[in-house]
């Protein structure tokens, strides 16, 4: 299993789509990570306050609080000033990418992605 080469991390997956969350959850758990889940920005902030999270993976379009607002809020929390936050986005949404970056997002992963692409991207930000 090449996926066990890096240390286990606590990863927060934020997406309003259960199938996306399920995919992220299954892939990352199989790779030995601990995966926390949230279905929108508000839930994600609650989780982030109570759990130590090493990496956040978040959708952009979500009800209640979108991903970009969530990034802005997270960056204001002292524990999350430097935490990698990756946005799950579509290629077409160039403006949103820029907006996300300006809000403080670390990078992005273009949808659709498959488990291998997800793991490869995670490897880029986990020490």
């Amino acid at each position: 299993m090449p996926t066990l080469l890096f240390a286990m991390a606590s990863i927060l997956a934020v997406d309003d789509s259960p199938s996306m969350r399920a995919l992220v959850y299954a892939t990352l758990t199989n790779a030995g990570h601990r995966v926390l889940q949230a279905s929108d920005g508000v839930e994600a902030l609650t989780v982030a306050k109570t759990e130590a999270v090493n990496l956040v993976l978040a959708d952009v379009n979500m009800p209640n609080m979108d991903g970009i607002t969530m990034v802005r809020e997270l960056r204001m929390m002292s524990d999350y000033r430097f935490t990698p936050i990756l946005m799950l986005t579509t290629e077409s949404a160039t403006d949103r990418k820029k907006e996300a970056k300006e809000a403080g997002a670390t990078g992005w992963l273009v949808k659709p992605f498959d488990p291998e692409q997800l793991l490869a991207t995670i490897r880029k930000v986990i020490t």
Binding site: D16, S17, S19, M20, L23, N61, M62, P63, L88, T90, K111, P112, F113, D114
Partner: peptide, 24 residues
């Protein structure tokens, strides 16, 4: 409209991921 958009967006994303290029 946001709700409708998000639904379309999720289906597109999911379809791409699960190999339904036609739907996506």
């Amino acid at each position: 409209i946001n709700g409708i958009f998000r639904a379309a967006h999720s289906i597109k994303g999911g379809a791409g991921t699960f190999g339904f290029a036609g739907i996506s």
